[in-house]
Design a protein around this nucleic acid. Structure first.
Lengths: 154, 154
DNA sequence: GTTTACCTTATAGTAACTTCAGGCTTGGCC
DNA sequence: GGCCAAGCCTGAAGTTACTATAAGGTAAAC
């Protein structure tokens, strides 16, 4: 199976496959006489594993760890649970952060229901005032007093 | 005011300020005899405007547009409304996508409440089976039949 | 024999910074 | 005056997970 066929079967781009191989996530296949990558079914399983993890928004670093467990199943799987728990926590924080953000944007949008000139635009005024340290429609009603309401988890 | 002071007042990193100047978002200040950047209060306002927009998760490209309206308030502000509306739509889709993802991860996490060896770990088994084309605990109950449930808006 | 589809590598670009390397300036202390 | 630490400077490279491009080789059909 050549790379194009593998890509079609897995539903990803050819370049992505080469990238995963380059990153050491996908094991390197044999080559044909012409130097073409020649895949077998276990490669499809490997690739699908990676793509499935990615569809759960795991980083390639996380996938790398899970792939380690996959290839060495003697290990204690507590590490898997931890990884999923941490990832879940990250995603949960992202959800909360984005929901707050959505409320902030809606509040901002309320400021300018009709189109006028920018000098009188409530949205822009709010943004400019906020930069001056004024209470802002977007952050004040929801924020907890910290300077910028929307924080990424690190 | 030197760059370190400006950074402390605005609550950002020195490098971020230099980056914004480099990107043409923040106007370049005067320099001292030694070549140090010397800021005045309008720079703080400018910087806070950028940081506030960024705290609303706007891209620098979006901030650039809003900064244009800010410096030229004669323009029709319909563009501002459009920008906020589009951004709101993007954020809303992100929220929905991440909420789905969270459900998927919770379903996956359910598979392995206790720690055993990876060979019998329900999470890993689910991930591996999914790669084989089996129905997976994470995607099946929520997915709509498409291969990978979590899609980014483009 | 040529067109078409497919494959190869290496390199650069994306977003929004962050980090690093290597070097100058300022201010305090002795 | 000498020394040191903190703070400033520039320019380049690193980060993530690809995506795109350039320039070219190969295989099969027509």
């Amino acid at each position: 199976m050549l790379i194009g066929q593998l890509a079609r079967q897995a539903g990803c781009e050819v370049e992505t496959i080469r990238y995963y191989e380059h990153e050491g996530l996908l094991s390197a296949p044999e080559r044909t006489a012409a130097g073409y990558r020649s895949y077998r079914s276990e490669h499809l399983g490997e690739l699908n594993f990676i793509l499935h993890c990615r569809s759960l928004d795991m980083s390639l670093a996380e996938v790398r760890i899970l792939a380690g467990f996959r290839s060495d199943p003697q290990q204690d799987c507590a590490g898997i649970n931890d990884l999923i728990d941490r990832h879940l926590e990250t995603v949960h924080q992202q959800v909360e952060s984005l929901q707050l953000l959505e409320q902030q944007l809606l509040a901002l949008r309320e400021r300018c229901p009709a189109s006028r000139d920018a000098a009188h635009c409530g949205i822009l005024r709010t943004l400019v005032d906020a930069a001056q340290g004024e209470a802002c429609a977007c952050h004040t009603p929801f924020g907890d007093g910290t300077r910028h309401g929307h924080t990424e988890s690190t």
